[in-house]
Design a protein around this nucleic acid. Structure first.
Lengths: 146, 146
DNA sequence: AGAGATCGGTTGGCGGCGCCAACGATGTAG
DNA sequence: CTACATCGTTGGCGCCGCCAACCGATCTCT
């Protein structure tokens, strides 16, 4: 394997994005096995955790654009993982509900994702994994809301 | 700002990809200011560091698909940042050369990228930055060549 | 020397993700 | 009542990663 330029490997942003690419590849494989993708997981997780929500709210929680929420919910509704009904209290909104099948799918995706963590972090000790998570969390929360 | 599901924030792969998204956004802004994108930087950096190379070699070094190398080099050649000439020793290959203008462009992108690191890692102390880089490097090298 | 595998460049296409502009319907504040 | 904001939806764009196919050149094996 040819060497990677030090110009690149010296930049944290490069390391970050490259490792993220790998994480994304692993996650996509796991999700693909159950016929889903990342956007579906985010929405199912948000619904499971906070209950019924409007699409706009889901977008804000999951860091997704409104238009992408529409597409994802179309796909989830097609598979009966989610139900979309008009909100009687505010006729602009849709009420999005998690179904039993959706909850089962979420469980499946969660298990797949747990395997991904193990694969991804394999070379790190438990303390190192914790340290990494701590550092990333600091960066994540700091840059929330840009 | 609505809360993000703990399902997500608990997974290192999620934190990683989200922070990477932010890093990517910052880098894109910086690159955009000089009319370039990530693929251009990778190739210029590889040429600067290892000298003349074939497109296939650049692809291997920079973790890029051969077809994407073609497109990036088309764009770089258009801007005279790179020169593409047939290799007399192996008529399948192209010899890709960094021009003076290309080297200047690389300098500009390097400066932009340095500012990105500062912005991205702002909440971390010098030791924390070092620790993060060390951990990411371990993950990066471990997953090299999948 | 010749047949077959491999390599390099090119074209064309696809999917995931992030994002933006615009529209119409609805809601809210003045 | 008017102005403004919000919500869902449609349609489009860019970046990045990747794949299949093709053709010419090169290498390998016999």
């Amino acid at each position: 394997m040819e060497e990677t330029p030090a110009h690149l490997t010296a930049k944290p942003s490069w390391l970050l994005t490259q490792v993220a690419v790998h994480a994304h590849r692993l996650a996509s494989e796991g999700f693909g096995e159950v016929g889903a993708r990342g956007y579906h997981y985010r929405i199912l997780a948000a619904l499971d955790e906070f209950g019924v929500a409007s699409q706009a709210e889901l977008g804000r929680r999951c860091n997704m654009d409104r238009s992408d929420v529409v597409a994802a919910i179309n796909e989830l509704a097609e598979r009966d993982h989610v139900e979309r009904t008009p909100d009687p209290d505010d006729r602009r909104r849709n009420r999005v509900t998690l179904t039993a099948a959706g909850r089962r799918q979420l469980r499946r995706m969660d298990r797949a994702l747990d395997r991904v963590q193990d694969d991804l972090l394999e070379p790190l000790s438990a303390e190192d994994r914790q340290a990494l998570t701590r550092l990333l969390t600091r960066l994540f929360t700091h840059h929330q809301g840009d």
